[in-house]
Design a protein around this nucleic acid. Structure first.
Length: 411
DNA sequence: TCTGGGGTCCTAGGACCC
DNA sequence: TCTGGGGTCCTAGGACCC
């Protein structure tokens, strides 16, 4: 092969990647069915309170027949399917099952990227010799192993890139497998509605429709510059993806080792009924600041930006953020900054408050050395928070709340 | 009984500096 | 007095994903 030939090759051809996307079917519901087999085949919904402001996290296939789906308000799910069994779910148990599944997947290849609690990409490119089997057979073994060892149904998509693998897995659901052979990517994607493309949600879907782009294949009719002008970076990437050309890069640093480091930590709460009490909102901010601070200290990272989020009764949402003069992992720094940003928002509108959120951003490793001038002061504050964290580990989070947070729970 | 909670990434405007 | 770009940081908002 000449150098010119190599230069002319498209990215997906330079290495014949084999990527598998493994996606657990109706994950939360499937775990609930394992724990309680009498739920099998029934309309089951895991999510928030169907008589309150919750939303659906997962719906069984029986419930989906009524039009229930993840993300829908639980109250709406209840109206669509009054006989559905609503469960609040237990995320600790789901995490345990998730770890089990990831452990099984990790045995097939170290090149694994966990992208969420119920999804992972596997790079099987080098695995055929190791497993003495073709890609299809390896995928079948994975499918079988997940079910045999965890009892959970999964769907698997295999292709030359991440996007193709993911869409194939979706198409294979439930409990199925789909392999897209090399060179067939564009043909597989072309007839699918544009909304099936990961990254294209309801808003951009409407924009694409305006251009007459209804199916993924329609993207190729447009010059990349046009798509870039309208959709920015995203548009150009989508055109490439429509041809099945994504790098197929699997970032296995997130595998069994865990995440390489988060960019942000946040907590938010929606009141069960909107509140017009500024004192209650302040108390909630205090509670959230404590919660975020505690989680930050667990990561061993420091932040340099604090953000506050407020959603009003009308659902109008405002955010404020403030960069700090230096990094911190201190609850009182979060609290102070959040309060400073909160006051003008409380004064600025008499509308009731629906949601409050507090977060921190731009996380980096906690520095070993600290400014000597500040060390003594810091050490004292830190000692207080450490002992509170310890009490919480022992007795639960609510056991050690700052006095100002106690009000949060009232009403 | 409309619309959770935890994230990621992108955009766009203004400040500020060179 | 008028008038430049580029680069980077900060802030607010929004789309999207699970």
């Amino acid at each position: 092969m000449s150098t010119a030939d190599i230069m002319n090759m498209k990215p997906s051809q330079t290495r014949n990647k084999i990527i598998a996307h493994v996606d657990l079917d109706a994950f939360f519901v499937s775990v609930e069915e394992l724990l309680n087999p009498s739920l099998r085949g029934k309309p089951v919904v895991v999510g928030g309170n169907p008589f309150g402001r919750g939303v659906v996290s997962a719906a069984s296939y029986a419930a989906r027949k009524f039009g229930v789906h993840a993300g829908m308000p639980s109250s709406q799910a209840r109206r669509l399917c009054p006989r559905a069994i609503f469960l609040r779910g237990s995320h600790g148990i789901y995490s345990q099952y998730s770890s089990q599944v990831m452990e099984v997947l990790g045995r097939f290849t170290p090149a694994m990227e966990q992208v969420s609690v119920d999804e992972a990409y596997l790079d099987l490119t080098g695995c055929q010799r190791l497993h003495k089997a073709g890609a299809v057979e390896i995928a079948q073994r994975i499918h079988h192993a997940v079910h045999a060892e965890t009892g959970l149904p999964a769907s698997i998509g295999v292709g030359a890139g991440r996007i193709v693998a993911k869409i194939a897995a979706n198409a294979a659901k439930p409990n199925g497998m789909m392999v897209i052979n090399p060179g067939r990517e564009a043909a597989f994607l072309a007839p699918l509605p544009i909304g099936k493309m990961p990254g294209i949600g309801p808003v951009s879907q409407r924009e694409y429709m305006k251009l007459g782009i209804r199916r993924i294949g329609d993207l190729s009719q447009f010059k990349p510059e046009i798509l870039r002008q309208i959709f920015g970076k995203h548009g150009a990437a989508m055109a490439r993806r429509a041809q099945g050309e994504d790098g197929g890069h699997v970032d296995f640093s997130t595998g069994t080792e865990g995440r390489s480091g988060s960019q942000s930590v946040s907590r938010e709460v929606t009141y069960s009924t909107d509140t017009g009490d500024p004192g209650r909102v302040r108390a909630t901010v205090s509670y959230l600041a404590e919660s975020v601070g505690r989680r930050v200290r667990k990561t061993g990272l420091v932040f340099d930006t604090v953000t506050l989020k407020l959603r009003r009764a009308s659902f109008a949402t405002v955010t404020r953020s403030r960069a700090l003069s230096r990094t911190s992992d201190d609850t009182s720094v979060i609290y102070q900054a959040a309060c400073d940003m909160l006051e003008p928002l409380l004064t600025g509108s008499r509308e009731r408050v629906r949601l409050v959120g507090v977060g921190v951003r731009a996380m980096e490793k906690k520095p070993e050395q600290m400014d000597l001038f500040l060390m003594e002061q810091e050490a004292r504050i830190e000692a207080v928070h450490r002992s509170m964290d310890q009490a919480r580990d022992k007795y639960g989070f609510e056991s050690a709340l700052m006095a100002r947070s106690i009000l949060h729970g009232r009403g």
